[in-house]
């Protein structure tokens, strides 16, 4: 039997919006990694004293770093939102409707963010 193997196009991810979204989410891991690196750079600068910290702030204020961080933020948000969206399907609690699980995730996110804001602006 000489079956025909259907080739997978190199651009399969452009064929459908859901595929593109999926590839973007996969890509978001790179930006998550970037944020980790950025955080480590910040910690390193802080531990080195006032001067290096100000150098770091100046470096961060450059246009390209700002753009990079804005893009990274967008990807991280995409990651978080899609992650939360699947949570109700992974976490099935008896007698609790799925939307409660979803809302609980967003509430937890809001509470944590508020905590961070409080620490930073205190």
């Amino acid at each position: 039997m000489s079956a025909h193997q259907q080739p997978v196009s190199a651009f399969w991810w452009l064929h459908q919006w859901s595929y593109l979204l999926f590839v973007l989410r996969e890509l978001s891991s790179v930006f998550v990694a970037w944020f980790v690196v950025y955080l480590l750079m910040l910690v390193s600068a802080v531990s080195a004293g006032q001067g290096p910290y100000e150098d770091f702030l100046a470096w961060s204020g450059q246009g390209w770093v700002l753009v990079l961080n804005v893009v990274a933020l967008a990807f991280v948000l995409l990651h978080a939102v899609t992650w939360f969206a699947l949570a109700p399907r992974a976490i099935v609690v008896p007698r609790v409707p799925p939307w409660v699980v979803l809302v609980a995730h967003y509430l937890a996110w809001a509470v944590l963010s508020a905590g961070v804001v409080w620490v930073v602006l205190r």
Binding site: Q16, S18, Y19, F22, E26, T82, L86, R89
Partner: peptide, 16 residues
């Protein structure tokens, strides 16, 4: 599985 989610969209019987 990396959760594309298209399987559930395609399913004609609501299996998810």
């Amino acid at each position: 599985c990396t959760f594309v989610g298209e399987c559930s969209t395609a399913c004609p019987k609501g299996v998810d």
